[in-house]
């Protein structure tokens, strides 16, 4: 796709225009991201709410029916379901499985483990299983 930017500091209102053959999920997601002012998720630690920037989130995972947000060295409780957290997330996030969403920018490497499953090793040492059918999505995001 050809991408053109017109940068003008005197512009009164910023706008984006797409010329597409058809609407795709990827474009819809980018549109949502452009229209969304919120770049944070609200997470709780000891009943205190924290605004966690998307760029600081490594992983969001369901554990014992609770949705947990992982940053580099902290964990927060997200008071909602995983799909609710996913709605506003940026395109840096991909589904690793039905119970985990990860930020691909923080992936260190992937490993095929002895039982044949695939683990993602995050840069902070977190280990999360990725479903084989999600590998295609990850490859697309990496431009492969």
């Amino acid at each position: 796709m050809e991408i053109k930017f017109n940068i003008d500091k005197d512009l009164q209102k910023e706008k984006a225009e797409f010329w597409l053959k058809k609407m795709t999920g990827k474009i819809r997601k980018i549109t949502q991201e452009l229209q969304s002012d919120s770049q944070v998720l609200w997470g709780y630690r000891k009943e205190t709410a924290y605004a966690i920037e998307f760029s600081k989130i490594y992983l969001i995972q369901v554990e014992n029916e609770k949705t947990i947000i992982y940053t580099q060295d902290k964990t927060y409780l997200f008071k909602g379901r995983l799909y609710q957290a996913r709605i506003n997330l940026s395109t840096d996030f991909i589904e690793a499985s039905r119970s985990a969403i990860l930020n691909y920018r923080f992936i260190d490497h992937l490993e095929i483990i002895s039982n044949g499953n695939i683990d993602v090793l995050m840069k902070n040492g977190l280990r999360v299983q990725i479903a084989r059918r999600k590998i295609k999505k990850l490859k697309e995001r990496l431009g492969l």
Binding site: H109, L110, I112, I118, R132, K139, L142, G143, L144
Partner: peptide
């Protein structure tokens, strides 16, 4: 699969 993982790790 092994080839795909190697390719992804290289890109990462």
């Amino acid at each position: 699969l092994w080839h795909e993982i190697r390719q992804i790790n290289k890109k990462l």
